[in-house]
Nucleic acid binder design. Sequence first.
DNA 1: CGACACATGTAACACGTTACATGATTTG
DNA 2: CAAATCATGTAACGTGTTACATGTGTCG
Lengths: 181, 181
Amino acid sequence: MSVKHGLLALLERGPMYGYQLRAAFDSATGGTWPLNIGQVYTTLSRLERDDLVAALPENDGQRPYEITAQGRDEVRKWFSTPVRQGDRPRDEMAIKLALAITTPGVDVAGVVMTQRTATMRTLQEYTRLKTEPGELPWLLVLDAMIFQAEAELRWLDHCEASLVRYSPPAVPAPTDVEVPR
Amino acid sequence: MSVKHGLLALLERGPMYGYQLRAAFDSATGGTWPLNIGQVYTTLSRLERDDLVAALPENDGQRPYEITAQGRDEVRKWFSTPVRQGDRPRDEMAIKLALAITTPGVDVAGVVMTQRTATMRTLQEYTRLKTEPGELPWLLVLDAMIFQAEAELRWLDHCEASLVRYSPPAVPAPTDVEVPR
DNA sequence: CGACACATGTAACACGTTACATGATTTG
DNA sequence: CAAATCATGTAACGTGTTACATGTGTCG
């Protein structure tokens, strides 16, 4: 529902057409989740169908939309309702790890390490982006991504530690035992 | 793709039928993202179509599926490939906040506060669940949720602080100024 | 002119959710 | 027997992605 409500919120600033909406969305979120132009049009059609936006007369090949009263209601509701845990999509990494543990023949530590490397790289890229100038909304989005990536790293480390405790190494550490010869 | 790959990974333990798969998935993830039974069947059909699983002969009204060699390949690939930032769904809260800032007439601090309360409650529930016994996979999933919620809380506080700096209160704090009477 | 950006749209597909229909088995 | 649980499946819908088709305007 992020795209639907996002476009709707953008239209509260005034009528806009598809391309403008995409540009505005991408700019507000700093291009973190670039919007496919095709989806803008399909979403606008659905919003129009539900009477949340209305098409204005075509002009110069451009087809601006304006938000309706019902659309404004929807936006107000969106902003005043928190995102609940149940609304969120499944956390793929959490699922992957949970299943990796109980799937025979999977190198769980490897899975953790691979993800750690990838997330680390992502975090570095975000940190680099932080040094560049930007508007407040985009800076906060960036911070959200950074906080999230840091949390994932902490979690991965925590998992690594738990796994060691859970399944001690199959091959014991070498000791000073007499070897028959 | 979490469901598709999740079911596939479960089938590596041995053939299972729909109901078993749902139970196994829910148990592994501690019921955090309960699986709709309808989706299990539609997903199984698609997996069968793609030759990642094969249906075994029906028995007692139960229709178990077994994973194919191609399916095993897919699972191996899933476990050895990290979840990239671009794979993740859009962060609805981040989008909401970014747009709230630039949408006229929105009480941004209110949006932050509402979310903070909701996330706080969620975190408390997770902390309570932590005190109950559980298997390692589910405990780690729970930890992932906790780390995530904590990160969101930190982010929300960070946003609140940034917003104060960005737009100082319209009504200045009361001072000891002479009031005409 | 040719390439590129702007602009709109459609079709097909993947994934996920909900609701519904159907039947077998178990249990109070 | 009636209700609940187990078990399978289908249909319809919502959301999102990709690819494709089409046309206009601008600029080197």
